[in-house]
Amino acid sequence: MNIIVCVKQVLDPDIPPAKFKVNSEAKQVVPPEGIPPVINPYDAQAVELALRLKERNGGKITVLTAGGDGAEKVVKHAISMGADDGFVLNDAAFEGSDSFGAAYILTKAIQKIGEYDLVLCGRQAADWDEGLVGSIIAENLSSSLVILAEDAELVEEGLKVKRVTLDGYQVFVVPTPAVVTVSNEVGQARLPSGLGIISAARRQIPVWKAADIDVDPAQVGAAAARRKLLKLFIPARERKCELVEGETTAEAAAKLAEKLREARII
């Protein structure tokens, strides 16, 4: 089965809060110096699910990313995990695209690749946390969609997908080609192998421009964005913490209980 995985490069979501900074004038996040961006963790997990499906059913895994300089790094990461092939979608015209623009660009690239049974996306990109692009791609391709997948397997009627819900899960069987967005319940993404890293490092990742995937420039970029970012700021979340101390931890704990009682919290 042929699988296309959409992967995005994002600011490392594991950076400590102290290192997260924004430039409110420019309405941009200031990437912390020294900490390079990473593959969106959900996308790495989408690649993981793709690899498991490939191990069971054979086929080919192609990864796509729309992004600027350095974006090939996430494609290489996917390849070092075991993906077969990948492309970077980069064109000045793409800059400032919103989720709909990005989904349109990706859709065009998917259509250029043509041969596929399944498109995998992450449940959301850990930068803007939208959770839109996968679903929009499904609409663009008018293919079936299951979001928040924690597992998937190939069956006669198509693809059997286990979808996470707040209180449990749902099981769908959908016709292929399908679009599925992957949630973290899929489990840890595998680490790249030694040979995987080396072969990825040796690879040249082709870049597709607007013309290569016949994207209409009028439909992408900041100008085509359906909404504007007006403000970006770091909310004041800090509270004043009263540290409860004692000779021993146990003693401190007892004091804590008393304090909570005094404050009528318990």
Binding site: E238, R239, C241, E242, E245, A250, A252, A254, L256, A257
Partner: peptide, 27 residues
């Protein structure tokens, strides 16, 4: 601790049993 109103620095294995005991008593 930056986002808490009360904090206790220590191993929970000591803290929780003591907390349970004291809360029982207080309640």
């Amino acid at each position: 601790f930056k986002e808490a109103d009360f904090g206790l620095v220590g191993d929970y294995k000591q803290a929780i049993p003591a907390l349970i005991e004291k809360c029982k008593a207080l309640l």
